[in-house]
Amino acid sequence: MVPPSRGEQRVSGREHAIAMTRLNVNGRLVEVNADPDTPLLWAIRDHVGLTGTKYGCGIAACGACTVHIDGQPIRSCATLLSAVSETQKIVTIEGLSPDGNHPIQRAWRELDVPQCGFCQSGMIMAAAALLAEKPQPTDADIDEAMTNICRCGTYNRVRAGIHAAVRGRTSG
């Protein structure tokens, strides 16, 4: 237990306790002082301070909050802080590539995939995880993996972007 940072704040009981959790985010060890029941999404956004990961629904329905844990795409709004240990590697959109040049990011720029962009961090993280698992995904693979919601309607370009990323990677 770490005392809350501000004097006037009181911790009222176990269920709202603030505790310190260590996370490995984008290769960096960070300490998060928060209720262990806080979803990882909000720990990342409000405590770690990385806001590329978005809140769209909070119920694992939209994928805007997708990050990787040990390479697996997960919906961080439905993953509690207490369920993540510091030995697990969390990667957010900010850490996907050092210079924004992951093949998916490059393909996204080539094809101008994003519209408003709000869903796109999640889209890119889901697409990157798909490519890591299946270097040459079929359309059926894409259908199955890419269940993120985009209200602007970028779906066809997302699909084209994944195929373009494969081509970009294989052609060097």
Partner: peptide, 27 residues
């Protein structure tokens, strides 16, 4: 013409209203 604002939407760098931070800010 390619969009002028695509790059920041592929790296999480674009700051939306929901992402704003200010010193002393409360939610």
């Amino acid at each position: 013409k390619p969009r002028l604002d695509t790059a920041a939407k592929t790296t999480g760098a674009l700051v939306y209203g929901a992402d704003l931070k200010m010193p002393g800010m409360l939610v």
